[in-house]
Computed example of a mutant assay.
Amino acid sequence: MATKDVDNEGISEEDRPYTPEDLLKIINAPSGGLSMLPSDAYNEVYPNILLGEESIAKQRVQLQKLGVTHVLNTAEGKDDGYHVHTNHVMYRKVNIEYLGIPATDMMSFNLSKYFNKCADYIEDALSNGGKILVNCKVGASRSATIVLAFLMLKRHLPVQDAVRLVRKEREICPNDGFLQQLCDLNEILKKKGHFKCTEEIR
């Protein structure tokens, strides 16, 4: 019978809360321990979920060609240095639904208050046969965090599995504050038994 790895305090690896450092090891492992920015404008990180940067978010015709039906801008705002200035009006012309949240890529920003709203929006898009682009400025921190939260909330993936799944398809680098918020969400969901009904990843 397999035994669980146990640390010095008698806590099994499976039961120990994940930390931002644990997640960073997973994120940086494919690049030899280095933090990497995305090499593509967008990547499909889960069936019909594109994770991308500002440039693809503003190419409405290209999005239409890709079959995108919904856009979730996790960096909505008019400050071009840190945010992406898009809105529902610009997408209406190409029949793309839009949701924007005014998140800032700072460790102190509470992105978790948007986790459920964004997860519901992504789920609604997918359940209706749509394809969604989730973007921020670079497509690596705010948007990646929201996609990870979706996978945890709606696909019942523990945080480490969600991170591995997304990192396999795209370089990501959520800030430490966002990683901590994902770890906190993981603990809340674990205590509720949320991950015991893990859905098979197709």
Score class of each variant (00 low, 15 high):
3 T>L: 14
4 K>L: 15
5 D>P: 07
6 V>L: 12
8 N>E: 14
9 E>R: 14
12 S>H: 06
15 D>I: 10
17 P>L: 11
26 I>W: 00
29 A>Y: 03
30 P>G: 04
32 G>R: 04
33 G>V: 04
37 L>E: 13
44 E>W: 00
44 E>A: 11
44 E>V: 10
46 Y>V: 07
49 I>H: 02
51 L>H: 05
51 L>R: 08
53 E>N: 15
56 I>G: 04
57 A>G: 11
58 K>V: 12
59 Q>I: 00
64 Q>C: 08
68 V>R: 00
71 V>E: 05
72 L>M: 06
73 N>K: 06
73 N>H: 05
74 T>A: 15
77 G>E: 03
79 D>G: 01
83 H>N: 14
89 V>F: 08
90 M>T: 11
90 M>N: 04
92 R>C: 12
94 V>F: 10
95 N>K: 14
99 L>N: 00
104 T>E: 15
108 S>K: 15
109 F>R: 12
116 N>L: 10
117 K>Y: 10
117 K>H: 14
119 A>E: 02
119 A>W: 06
119 A>C: 08
127 S>L: 08
127 S>N: 13
128 N>D: 06
134 V>K: 01
134 V>L: 05
138 V>R: 05
144 A>M: 04
150 F>C: 06
152 M>S: 08
154 K>T: 11
155 R>V: 12
155 R>L: 09
162 A>S: 12
167 R>G: 03
170 R>W: 02
174 P>Y: 12
177 G>S: 11
179 L>S: 05
181 Q>L: 07
183 C>K: 04
184 D>Q: 14
186 N>Q: 08
187 E>P: 01
188 I>G: 00
188 I>K: 14
188 I>Y: 03
189 L>Q: 05
189 L>E: 05
190 K>D: 09
191 K>R: 11
191 K>D: 10
195 F>P: 11
198 T>L: 07
